[in-house]
């Protein structure tokens, strides 16, 4: 549900269904929430962040951890309780304490976590596959949310200029961007992020064959492909530009061989432009682009 479905009322009581019996409002734990001065929402907020409430800081820290690491210290993060202990209880306690002392500063918490060695580990799995993700011995590979996917596509294909991405009007542009909205409707997944790949066949079809990708990989429409037409570029440079724009890395030697060979078989200006579109298509549809790794 969206927040638009709710309306805060300043009056009104909760009654038993089909009766007039008023149910008094209590805190979790049983104490009456009885205060004429303040709204109930205010009372709830104060109660949640009260220094003697042990739950809020732990749950919040665990949630931020799970966003960054793909799984919580307590996992699933919605299932906190004695039956589901944390993988690293001392780490969770220390982070919760730090979070309280920083006056619940999310920015500082994210700064702290992203600076850790644990966060900066490689996601490369080597031989060990999926074994023991709860040890956080390498970075988890996370799926992009639909929003991240659209923005990544837009940024990689120069549909949005970098200045626009950071600029103050970006928020409004995003709401008004109908292409973005219809993409999000199509690509929406029940649990955004996480370490499971969430999309299905219709979404894959749309990314391979849909209008957004077709436009981005068509030489006469695509901004990035048109800019690569300049005659002073070599094929190596064109290839490097496309890899950097999509995967933010240079091609590996074996990739360079494969892709250059493909470009070289297309030597007229028209077929070259098409071949560059094919390279971009492959890059935009590969797992490395679609995942946060």
């Amino acid at each position: 549900m969206t927040s638009g479905d709710f309306q805060e009322l300043d009056t009104g009581e909760v009654t038993l269904p089909d009766t007039d019996e008023v149910i008094p409002v209590r805190y979790l734990g049983g104490e009456l929430a009885d205060d004429e001065e303040n709204s109930r929402r205010r009372l709830l907020a104060d109660w949640m962040v009260a220094p003697d409430n042990p739950y809020f800081a732990r749950a919040t820290v665990n949630r931020i951890w799970s966003h960054l690491f793909g799984r919580g210290l307590v996992d699933p993060p919605d299932d906190m309780g004695q039956q589901n202990p944390a993988s690293h209880p001392k780490v969770l306690e220390a982070l919760a304490e730090y979070f309280k002392q920083s006056d619940y500063d999310l920015r500082q918490m994210i700064f702290l976590l992203t600076g850790t060695q644990a966060y900066q580990l490689s996601s490369s799995s080597g031989e060990s596959g999926d074994a023991m993700p709860e040890l956080f011995h390498r970075m988890a590979i996370k799926s992009l949310t639909a929003e991240q996917m659209y923005d990544s596509l837009a940024a990689a294909t120069c549909r949005l200029q970098p200045a626009q991405l950071g600029g103050p009007t970006f928020g409004l542009n995003r709401v008004l961007d109908q292409g973005r909205q219809s993409f999000l409707t199509k690509m929406r997944t029940p649990n955004n992020g996480g370490t499971k790949f969430q999309s299905g066949i219709p979404q894959a079809l749309s990314l391979m064959n849909g209008g957004l990708t077709a436009g981005a990989t068509d030489g006469s429409e695509s901004d990035i492909l048109q800019s690569l037409q300049a005659p002073f570029f070599s094929d190596e440079e064109r290839l490097e530009t496309l890899f950097l724009a999509t995967l933010t890395r240079l091609p590996q030697p074996d990739e360079q061989t494969t892709f250059l060979a493909y470009l070289e078989t297309h030597d007229s200006e028209e077929t070259k432009q098409r071949a560059l579109g094919d390279v971009l298509w492959a890059l935009l549809n590969c797992a490395e682009f679609a995942l946060n790794h």
């Binding site: 490369s124 596959g129 990739e255 492959a282």
Partner: peptide
């Protein structure tokens, strides 16, 4: 052909749930 080469080399080094799902 290009997609397959990218996909194969990424999965070889990232043999976990989400790349496999993709």
């Amino acid at each position: 052909q290009l997609w397959n080469s990218l996909q194969t080399s990424f999965l070889a080094h990232h043999d976990v749930a989400s790349p496999r799902g993709h």
